[in-house]
Design a protein around this nucleic acid. Sequence first.
DNA 1: CCTATGCACGCCCTTACCTCA
DNA 2: CGTGAGGTAAGGGCGTGCATA
Length: 347
Amino acid sequence: MELGLSLGEPDAGRAAPELGLGLGVGAAGRGVEAGRAAGAAARWWAEPVSETEPAVRLSLVSGGLGLQWPPASGSGRSTEALARGFDVNRAPSTAASALAAEDDEEDQAAGALSSSPNDSAGSFPLDLGRGGGAHGEGATARAGGGGERSSSRASDEDEGASARKKLRLSKEQSAFLEESFKEQSTLNPKQKAALAKQLNLRPRQVEVWFQNRRARTKLKQTEVDCEYLKRCCEALTEENRRLHKEIAELRALKTAPPFYMHLPATTLSMCPSCERVASNPTSAPAPGSSAPPAKAAAAVSNNSSAAVAPARGGEPRPSSFAALFAATRSFPLASQPRPPAPASNCL
DNA sequence: CCTATGCACGCCCTTACCTCA
DNA sequence: CGTGAGGTAAGGGCGTGCATA
């Protein structure tokens, strides 16, 4: 179905628990084992992740940027990158390099300290590339030693909390965050800190970016859901209209005299249930009837072509329209194939 | 064991800033 | 050049889950 579009979000492919519409609908469910298994071989962060962390989404590892994404675990590169920070000047792909070329001047000026064209060095007074100095690092260290929780929010509040300055992330940073989000839409403190260090951002910035990204994903999904529900509503309206029309036609037929009242007597020789001509002499054709039974049967089908439904295999014929009416047509509206539209009055 | 408290975090709403037509 | 719309980073409130006393 065309509405089952993937937004490139981790929501894609999930079940549809909330609306039950077969879409990837709904709030963030936590994909569990599959994502964890995928993530086990494809984590960009160095540390092992605790078992209690929110489950990893299905990995959508993409090579679109040509970044080593995720960096090969176990290789020295990831740790090196962590120590070095995300260096746009060494973007590992031509695409990324092309993107980086736009910001080369600023980046050269800012050096490795910041890859954002807008953020000045003053935005990041602390060299996050060097371990241990920042408040966030301390929080991370605490989290690493203890549980998952750390105070990335509070730790970032005081640093650079001057006038509200809009700082836009560079394309490389955004792309990297996007890839991270595809792999996992939520971060634990360790991952957040590692990503922040790699991108030369504050953990709070990474956190906010993910928060906003989740909000955008949800908004898009909501739009898709609305569109789908709109189409469902239209289909149901059409179905309702068709059924009303059918009911009106059936009522009109019900008020008319039954069709068999107009049939010649010879037609009554056929068993209405098995559609065979009765061979029993007691049910023989009425006296005076010269037509052979087979012809009579043919006469039935010819004379009642406008009102009699063709014989359906194995289906007993209703004895009256009332019975026809009483027979419920219990097919769920949207879940079963629609019966053919009543081209004639057949049922 | 139950309860109160503090903390961390995610979600939501909103604001402020930036870019672009 | 001024302006409005749209995108997005960030602030703040609120609810929730967890750890601890």
